[in-house]
Amino acid sequence: MAIKDLPIEECYIPGSAACPGCPATMALRIVYKALGKNTVKIVPACCTAVIESLHPYTSFDIPTMNIAFEAAAAGASGVEAGFRMQGKTDITVVAWAGDGGTYDIGIQALSGALERNTNFIYICYNNEIYSNTGIQRSGATPYGAWTTTTVSGKTEFRKEMGEIIQAHHIPYAAQACIAYPEDLFKKLQKAKIIHGPRYIEIMAPCPPGWRFPMEKTVEMGTMAVETGAWALYEVENDKVTFNGRSKLIMEGKVERKPIEDWIKYQGRFRHLFKPKKDIKRIKAIEDHIDQMWERYRKCYL
């Protein structure tokens, strides 16, 4: 599949409240292209609740229901049941949440909906922070990263949400990244026709949140994958397949790039380089990624 194979039709309407260079709208465009107009989306508190724009207008051409921060998956369970009871089983129900609403406050409702076998797609766009509220630490924030609540760098490593999701043994789960739209599109297409709970997480580098120039969103996504900080994979009925660059890293066909190649361009890690290089903490990040890949290889290769 090439970029030109992606449909022209747009359900994201220009002129929204999104920041310039926003990864969320970039991802949303692909989501809409893959899932089509017969889709209903449930959005908890997250950047998208702002991106929608101001009442009485919206920048989305897909019915969208805002719901409380921790309630996306539960709301989606209700929406799905409501449509099913009316025989409208052809509608794709999507919960679209940030990492805060997924890893932290929404994890209970998410786990419940997965366990209940709710027939929906849960998509987490992960920018590794509470960006909408002004860049606070979340369970997805990587070790060492500055946020407004981890002023000298986060002292804990992020959760591995993918593995938490896998423990639910749902029919389809995947990790994708905004820098790889064809991969994301394919995963969404695949997810669309599967029955039951599906989970897709999209790495979404945030220019104001990570402190990088707004034209670098795609590059930051590419480097997240090339350094191995983020892996592209999918899980179909417990069978894990790594995709694209991550597959090559997994199979040892390419070396993952040093983490420095990614973090040195992000202001959130500046304190690890200035005034002097914090070799210990940079190594800790590197080691953590090594451990993650070691675990991946042990489990899935």
Partner: peptide, 29 residues
């Protein structure tokens, strides 16, 4: 076209593109 976060790169049938300056936020992606 595919990476524009604002959908302000208009794709034509022949895959040529134009920029919608009314809404382009100038991110530079």
């Amino acid at each position: 076209w595919i990476f524009c976060p604002e959908a302000t790169i208009t794709r034509h049938k022949d895959d040529s593109v134009d920029i919608d300056y009314v809404y382009c936020k100038g991110c530079g992606i």
